[in-house]
Amino acid sequence: MIDKNIPTDLTAARHLTEEVLSLADAAGYSEDDRFAIRLALEEALINAIKHGNKFDPARQVRVSADVGNEQTTITVCDDGAGFDPSAVPDPTADENLEKPSGRGIMLMRAYMDEVSYNDYGNEVRMTKRRCTGLPHLAGHN
């Protein structure tokens, strides 16, 4: 179980990701599951650091990760003003394909089994059930 604050810093985020992946690896998660967890966690951390905390070093990111035998649950919370995840445009729409950003939420939803936000919109909670098979796209927006 990981439960800590990290600075608003991409290197700290990378180290945190390594820590979670080490736990998933020790628990025997498959390569596909570890890819999914890594991708979703990185996307959540990028959103927290870039859009939530706006790279402000005075702010922090709170992360908890429970890597269990059957599932992994991760919560990422920033100090920002929050946002409405339902208002994020579909990045797979033709008019958005050439936009360099805006894919993070879609990827979290595609690769994790459950993704939810708090009412304030500054905390995401994601669960990946230990399984095999392809990620799903249903209802990614």
Binding site: F35, L39, P100, R103
Partner: peptide, 16 residues
């Protein structure tokens, strides 16, 4: 072996 959305964004910027 891995690319995040920021990496995909980098390729799109290159494309543009």
């Amino acid at each position: 072996d891995f690319i995040c959305s920021a990496g995909l964004g980098a390729i799109i910027v290159g494309h543009l």
